[in-house]
Design a protein around this nucleic acid. Sequence first.
DNA 1: CTTGATCCTCCACCGACTAGAGGATGCAGA
DNA 2: TCTGCATCCTCTAGTCGGTGGAGGATCAAG
Lengths: 148, 148
Amino acid sequence: MSPLPIGRLAKLTDVKVTTIRFYESIGLLPEPLRTHSDRRIYDEGDVRRLGFIKHARQLGFAVEAIRDLLELSDHPERVCDSANAIAQEQLAAVDAKIAQLGALREELVRMTAAGCSGPAASCRVIESLSDHGLCSADHKPLASQVSV
Amino acid sequence: MSPLPIGRLAKLTDVKVTTIRFYESIGLLPEPLRTHSDRRIYDEGDVRRLGFIKHARQLGFAVEAIRDLLELSDHPERVCDSANAIAQEQLAAVDAKIAQLGALREELVRMTAAGCSGPAASCRVIESLSDHGLCSADHKPLASQVSV
DNA sequence: CTTGATCCTCCACCGACTAGAGGATGCAGA
DNA sequence: TCTGCATCCTCTAGTCGGTGGAGGATCAAG
């Protein structure tokens, strides 16, 4: 197929040039062929592989998970139990995150509901932050896996 | 009140010692008094301030936003318009994130629904990732503000 | 007096990129 | 052919919100 310079690949896949080089550096993309002047050249296969990576990242899969998924994609004869397991885990992580954000949302709504126009001394937002006891207390984020 | 060493403050607030020092280094917590042997000593005021910070972080506020909120909390005579604005923005960001994750969830459910036991060649997960056309195509994360 | 917990500073690392410096090359128009 | 700009190269450092460890000092209890 037609050989693509990195900029063309970037436009075709809507992935930044620097990100493509980054994916190569961490081994998600193989080292491509180079021109006589050391420029990277890609082909249709690279477009597909990068598309796969992009799609997986959009779904929030971590790079290490994507590495495993690509391995399977590269070896279609293997059993795919692990692909399903990875996706299930990701689904669980997304569900957890949604639940967590739902709880956050609730408190933010409560905090902002009253509106506020006076001095900070009587501000519901500041007050809520000062006293955790005022809120439902079951939103406990900090340290989550999904960072989409 | 009783002077607390950093470890006590950490346990009282459930914030790690290293994180407390980090907050000091970025100016969220003031430099505390020190003992003759250079150990930090805190008081009840620090417990409250750190609680405020922790609560705000749990709600997903960025450090810069927390800095502004603490400013207001420190000066209760000022008008608190900005506190409300910050909280409203955070609420909007959380809403956006929830919507986005909802879309991700949909696709993950579709991908994993079939279950999978054969070779990767016929794996729905791998297949879905390879061909973005198979999915609804309106989940477009990458680059979000809320990272709770 | 010794032991183990706690404290100190400084520096490097995490994930997943992003941005910029400083320089080489490619390509199109005059 | 020359000029000039776009694109490419490598390398380094920064982002955010912390986390972890090395190497050493100090504290409190037995």
